[in-house]
Amino acid sequence: MTGHSASPRRAGETTVADRHWLVWFARCGPASYLSHLDTARALQRTFARAGIDLALSQGFRPKVRFSLPLPLPVGAAGFDELAVAEVTAGAPPPSDAVRALRAAAPEGLTPTRVRECSARVRPRPRAARYAAEVRGDAVILAAEAARFAAEDEVLVERTSPKGRRTLDLKRYIGDLIVEAVPGGARICFSVRHRSDGAARPQEVVDLLAGRAGCPTVVHRLTRLGVSFEGVPRDEMSGREE
């Protein structure tokens, strides 16, 4: 659950009538450079500006009931991102809410759909598809993609504040396609989200670009789509309102 400490308004009030929403949104342009927490904060502020009250948790320090099930890396755009929100009973119908949220959102954050859902919905990411541009020779990069596909195991080391960990990218990466674009190449790939985690887009680029001997700086990283477990299929296929 992502949520900042909020004022205790409505804390302790009925939660029976609170409603559960799945909110799809696009994050691009300047908003691409927000961190996960900043994205959550900006969306919560968008709700407040739209006059739609988010429900609060119980307790001494209530938190808003709002979460982003899958963080988007800083610098990445995403056109089909999902937020899970719990709103108070007085919230408008979803179709009106989309219009109000769009009017209240900052540049680059665009709510696209709102669907009511049951309180039991707990979206868990299963897979995500990305596109990343690098400055390098598309032919060499494509050869490295083919080499990757032929390998049984590709071990990379991840260093984080928690320590070092070795992962096998082959367990997490699905199809890997390289195509030429002006000035470089676009790498498209899918990432499987497993119970033990997932590969990071930068790790895929580091591997491929590093092997190809080109800069590993990612340009125009975009998450093209995400599939979630726990979200009904008809909810996933709704189109922009």
């Binding site: 342009g29 056109f79 540049e107 299963r126 897979a127 899918s190 700086v217 340009h219 789509g225």
Partner: peptide
């Protein structure tokens, strides 16, 4: 694996943003 993919070529309302030299920085 089922991936919910967006239509290709979907554009950000902010346009081609930011300009290339800034994006690199």
């Amino acid at each position: 694996m089922q991936v919910q993919s967006t239509a290709s070529g979907r554009r950000c309302p902010s346009g081609e943003w930011p300009r290339d030299e800034l994006e690199d920085l």
